[in-house]
Design a protein around this nucleic acid. Sequence first.
DNA 1: GCGTAATTGCAACGCTGTTGCAACTTCTGA
DNA 2: TCAGAAGTTGCAACAGCGTTGCAATTACGC
Lengths: 156, 156
Amino acid sequence: MPLPQTEAPGRLVAELLSRGVRMTRQRRTILSVIETASQHLDAAQILRRARKLDPGIDRVTVYRTIRLLKRHGLVDELDLLHLEGEKHYYERHPQRDHLHMACVRCGKILEFESDLFERLKGQIQRDCQFHILVTRVEIGGYCAKCRGNSTDLRSV
Amino acid sequence: MPLPQTEAPGRLVAELLSRGVRMTRQRRTILSVIETASQHLDAAQILRRARKLDPGIDRVTVYRTIRLLKRHGLVDELDLLHLEGEKHYYERHPQRDHLHMACVRCGKILEFESDLFERLKGQIQRDCQFHILVTRVEIGGYCAKCRGNSTDLRSV
DNA sequence: GCGTAATTGCAACGCTGTTGCAACTTCTGA
DNA sequence: TCAGAAGTTGCAACAGCGTTGCAATTACGC
Ligand SMILES: [Mn+2]
Ligand SMILES: [Mn+2]
Ligand SMILES: [Zn+2]
Ligand SMILES: [Zn+2]
């Protein structure tokens, strides 16, 4: 399920440089992996892909770069209901929020944008006096294909 | 922030018994801890509280009981944006879903129910043909008190 | 180019959660 | 009521994800 390619490549590098963050060879590589990914990637996947481009990169550097990007609000973290293990997944922080649906049977991840969700955020900011920085909506259930199938692998 | 006490105590025991699950001394203890909690508890907190009632209980039993409850859809898992460590938190699966707001500055957790969210779920089930079993909404930002305060501890 | 401050890689570590297994407990049904 | 099968427990060892300390290396403003 390819995600929409909403951002020009190199955007993460530019964004970090504009904030005075030093740019190393390793960071450029890791950023390009995250930026060009068509799915949500976990740290191990990011490492594998980064090593194809620059074999010396260490997993510690991947973790530190992810933390850097989170601190700057440039990537979002998901756990996709931890349907497989305790991994976390990363994606570019999108212009507009989207929700994640995870099929507990086949593992497929769907994404969904909704005006109703934008209104919900507005309601929260107003009613709770809460200033929203980041949102994370993960919904578990059965996708269209698996709906109706009987074998229940549910573990959430 | 005390959660609403929506269920009678002993409900989890009854629910599991009615599904043919064996009831042990250890399980009763762990279930009562989860059932009477006024906040979201992580596994280590559940273990500590359970040991006050029955010192022999092992952490493995806590983890196995949590997994049992998740499998039966009787507790929900949260990570509250992993604002502190990689812990996961547990709460009784509520009658009606609610959202979680986590203040990235003071760590306070707010809960919020909303008809808008119920409508959003309806939209998802219709538009995506997705049958919802569980939802998890975690929103990070500044609570009313911390809004306006300057020191930014943001790490999400 | 120089110097300082940031970043990297490596090794060791910490913490959350899982697994294998023998001893024990629950619960059924005779 | 109690014997036996099936399920559960505690212990120890393990696995995986993520972090930390530190010396060597690199970026970048001057
Ligand atoms: Mn996404
Ligand atoms: Mn998580
Ligand atoms: Zn499916
Ligand atoms: Zn706050």
